[in-house]
Design a protein around this nucleic acid. Structure first.
Lengths: 159, 159
DNA sequence: TGAATATTGTTATATCATATCATTGCCCCA
DNA sequence: TGGGGCAATGATATGATATAACAATATTCA
């Protein structure tokens, strides 16, 4: 686990990256799927910071070291990483973010700062159970959900 | 208000449309903004059913009666309707849906059936207050949020 | 009426994502 | 151990969603 679970707080971010990649290797080994160089590199790029990043931004970066990279290259890597729970898509931004709760059974809940762009992943059981109750009361059976909260993170309120 | 608040239940949908348009006229008059023919027609098209509909689908329909309609025509109408709280964007589908709680102060919460495509808007105070609490505990100040729940509506579970 | 503003028309292009088929690489076991 | 089968990547093209920028027209209101 990262030493802090809040991107809003200062921290040694290289530890986040190292940790994310180490966990990814572990998960993929356990699941018997291949974290190929391209996939690992894309995951590393996504973890460069705590801001959701677009597919074509990633492509541009990947292309600097990987001439052959084209849109399908990125989207395939992103699909793989999503399928294996290593990243989330932020639907309201068409962008991707490293998963901060790898391995756990969860859907995403995100606090997205409109000032600095960082997104913090949370996993509030009280939120998901409220959704479950509300759905159940209407006979609706949940498969998954998207929760994206926009506002100002603690750091950006002080400015 | 529509006679039913649940699109999952059978109902006379023409009443939903009539009602939505009547409310829209009222809201726009109150807010002193212009519900022009294009805007009203787009709103009517969106309300044709309870499924989120894409901008280019709308464009295609609008173009049958309005030769000059181009992408900006639709996106401008959609922007207007969103600004005035008459429709919501479903971020995970890049699609638009009539607002079922016009006038009220609310963000969207949607139950989206992956089988039949209908989306039901709900407004659960317990969900929004859970989000508020979780955010506040982290020093995060909410401006808006997106909640999109995917699963099976009551009708589609029985199939 | 005429100036200011809002709306719509028009063209072009940016941005996000996938389909399809060819090629290469990896794995396993006969 | 080599070759069959499958997974991954390369390569080209195109589909789908959204906006920029400027011109023309319509509406409002002093």
């Amino acid at each position: 686990m990262p030493l802090t679970d809040s991107p809003a707080q200062p921290h040694d971010h290289s530890l986040c990256i190292d940790d994310a990649l180490a966990q990814a290797r572990l998960i993929c080994e356990r699941r018997n799927v291949r974290l190929t160089p391209i996939r690992e590199q894309v995951l590393g790029l996504i973890w460069q910071n705590h801001k959701p990043v677009g597919a074509y931004d990633l492509l541009e970066q990947l292309a600097t070291t990987h001439q052959a990279a084209k849109p399908p290259t990125i989207y395939r890597a992103l699909d793989f990483l999503q399928e294996n729970g290593l990243i989330h898509k932020i639907e309201s931004q068409n962008a991707f973010l490293g998963c901060a709760h790898v391995g756990g059974q969860h859907h995403g809940q995100f606090l997205i700062c409109t000032a600095c762009g960082t997104a913090q992943e949370i996993d509030e059981k009280v939120v998901s159970s409220a959704l479950k109750n509300a759905s159940q009361a209407r006979g609706f059976q949940i498969h998954s959900f998207v929760i994206e909260i926009k506002g100002l993170c603690a750091a950006c309120q002080d400015i």
